[in-house]
Design a binder for these strands. Structure first.
Length: 609
RNA sequence: UGCCUGAUGGUGUAAUGGUAGCACAGGUGACUUUGACUCACCCAGUCAUGGUUCGAAUCCAUGUCGGGCAGCCA
């Protein structure tokens, strides 16, 4: 990794990223092996995208943008039983959001409704589907653009895939098998024990052709027959033991409807989809390593006329205190541990977005962890750091009190309003300010007062002094309690000579606290999120549900400075001394504001309890 | 007990036979009208054992430990 900051913008110079896959690509570029580098991001629409997919997206789109290439968005939709249009839409939105302003110029889409065109290449019949050059900007989201381009999908290759299967049969490399699923499994053997050939393996080509056509013709029920590759049942690689190519599923597909009752399996569909699109580098995660031999076998067996794609594998992302598995995230949704896929506690792209994480922060993080074949667990602190790095320079500073204690400044008259200048962002080169009202009654945060302070406590205590940020230094004269013994009010004196412009403005006190005027504030719901799991590796024992943090969400009614009434969803705020906050894109409404805490500020002070 | 794959500070990574570097975390201090930010300093590593070589994190051998592979999922 280079020492320069990671490039997360569209216009900045290409970052000097280096990893084993980029080295391979660089080598291929140097050798001029391809006219253009083409990668793809191929999610199955059976769930929402998560932070692990973000790594894959940034790898594939990153390689494309660094090499003036293209990255196709393709739905790997070959299993209608698990897939749904809801997921197609959600994934499309997520990908668009993550790459917007960074790599959308490399996004490969196809013409709406298009399928691979038949052509003759090097004297052979060939199929190819090229990408269209879409309009710039929110390509995937506007209906105008959708008329001109749409994501690729394996299901739009079903005709060609069927033809390739027939070709494999004709070449004696595939056969129709009548073994039941259970028998197929039994015949396959085990990793340390060879499998044995199916009794149907030596059927004639003519019979295979006839049976396969009848499979397609809805003649047989689910599971009755399958199309299998004829490879080697004694191979030490299980995926070479006559793997299935097609199975019968009388299930409607979200895209092709009832047109098909046979569907290709991943290993057959994926390599050929890559080929049809002219993919040069097919990048996937480590668990597909064993499949690479089958990927190569399938393409080689068809004797295709164009250059074939190659598969490379990298280690998927693991993050501390987080689950990164679509299947398990689905369980969290179904079992109501969270409110949905886009719950701000979820590591889904939609959840992170809703929590207020900028796309640039997500990119910064996943690019920063690097690409290797080492199965690692990244510390969440690295993610937190990336988020703060993006938010600190851009977030507007605002005053907000999460858990209010009323404080009366006894030397300020009721109704009197003292205007204070508050800085909008001290990180700006020329910071601007706004006015906040200081009045007789204000709120400070519960955590900023201690009747019995721990050692080294800089905040307010009986008889102690503290600065109200942007206002003045105050002294706590009296702690007023209600009948139950709970603190109901703090009576303090304001030293107005310490205000900005006052003679004693430079007087130093150890602590500075945030505050809001009781009469010039608004109320809002604020959702305080904590990590979803209580241990660093929630699924280490396979029981991640037992480690869900029961305190992952705390909802408070906060007091906010009045200017926040005009808060907008795309603006990020730093509530001073508390953290970064964003309006909830789903539940917040004008007049009923709801903020999500994106992340707390780093807090080096740890009181001893 | 088969095959594939991997191992660099606490964590994530860089170094492609030639000075083991960066980031995060942690620690100490400076600064501070955010206990934030920023700055300075500190901390701490090549899985083991052999071999090749003038020289090994890198190449070879053996071992150890980790991950993956037996869906008609992807």
């Amino acid at each position: 990794m280079s020492v320069e900051p990671i490039d997360t913008s569209a216009t900045a110079a290409t970052p000097s990223l280096s990893d084993f896959i980029r080295s391979i690509v660089a080598h291929d570029v140097a050798e001029k092996r391809y006219a253009k580098i083409v990668t793809r991001f191929p999610p199955e629409p059976n769930g929402y995208l998560h932070i692990g997919h973000a790594k894959s997206i940034c790898l594939n789109f990153g390689i494309a943008r660094e090499n003036d290439g293209r990255c196709n968005l393709r739905f790997d939709d070959t299993n209608p039983a698990k897939e749904d249009l809801e997921y197609v839409d959600a994934i499309t939105t997520d990908v668009n959001w993550l790459i917007a302003g960074w790599a959308d110029q490399c996004l490969g889409l196809k013409a709406p409704g298009s399928t691979p065109a038949a052509l003759t290449t090097n004297g052979k019949t060939d199929f190819h589907l090229d990408a269209v050059q879409p309009a710039a900007g929110n390509v995937l989201l506007s209906t105008e653009s959708a008329r001109r381009a749409e994501p690729f999908s394996a299901s739009s290759y079903f005709d060609q895939l069927y033809l390739y299967a027939v070709e494999l049969i004709k070449r004696g490399k595939a056969f129709v098998c009548d073994l039941s699923p259970a028998d197929t499994e039994a015949y396959r053997g085990a990793p340390d024990r060879p499998g044995k050939d199916s009794p149907f393996r030596e059927r004639s080509i003519a019979e295979n052709l006839d049976l396969f056509e009848r499979m397609k013709g809805r003649e047989f029920p689910d599971g009755a027959r399958s199309l299998r590759a004829k490879i080697d049942n004694t191979s030490s690689n299980m995926w070479l033991r006559d793997p299935l190519l097609y199975r019968i599923r009388h299930t409607a597909h979200h895209h092709t409807g009832d047109t098909w009752c046979i569907y290709p399996l991943y290993d057959f569909a994926h390599c050929l989809s890559d080929y049809l699109e002219g993919i040069t580098h097919s990048i996937c995660t480590l668990e597909f390593d064993a499949h690479r031999a089958l990927y190569d076998w399938t393409l080689a067996s068809l004797d295709l006329p164009r250059a074939v794609p190659h598969q490379y594998e990298f280690a998927k992302l693991n993050l501390g205190y987080t689950i990164v598995s679509k299947r398990k995230l689905l369980q969290l949704v179904q079992d109501k541990f969270v409110t949905g896929w886009d719950d701000p506690r979820m590591p889904t792209i939609s959840g992170l977005r809703r929590r207020g994480i900028p796309a640039s922060a997500l990119r910064r993080f996943v690019i920063g962890v690097g690409v290797t074949k080492f199965d690692s667990v990244t510390d969440v602190a690295v993610f937190d750091h990336a988020v703060r790095e993006e938010l600190n320079p851009t977030a507007l500073r605002r005053l907000a009190v999460l858990k209010p204690i009323k404080l009366t400044l006894t030397n300020i008259a009721p109704g009197e309003v003292l205007e204070c200048d508050a800085t909008n962002n001290p990180q700006d080169e020329a910071p601007t300010t706004r006015k906040v009202a200081l009045t007789r009654e204000v709120y400070i945060d519960h955590d900023d007062f201690a009747e019995v302070p721990p050692p080294k406590y800089f905040r307010l205590k009986p008889g102690g002094e503290v600065r109200l940020k942007y206002a003045c230094i105050i002294t706590c004269d009296e702690v007023v309690k209600d009948a139950a013994g709970l603190i109901s009010e703090l009576r303090c004196t304001a030293d107005l000579t310490t205000r900005s412009g006052g003679p004693n403005v430079d007087r130093k006190v150890k602590g500075t606290v945030h505050w809001v005027s009781a009469s010039h504030c608004i109320e809002a719901e604020v959702r305080l999120y904590d990590r979803l799991f209580t241990i660093p590796e929630p699924d280490a024992d396979g029981e991640f549900k037992k480690h869900v943090n029961p305190h992952s969400l705390e909802v408070v009614t906060a007091k906010l400075e009045a200017s926040l009434a005009g808060a907008t969803a795309d603006q990020r705020y730093q509530f001073e001394r508390l953290g970064y906050f964003a309006l909830d894109s789903k539940d917040s409404a004008a007049g009923r504001l709801i903020f999500n805490r994106t992340i707390t500020l780093k807090d080096a002070w740890v009181p001893k309890k």
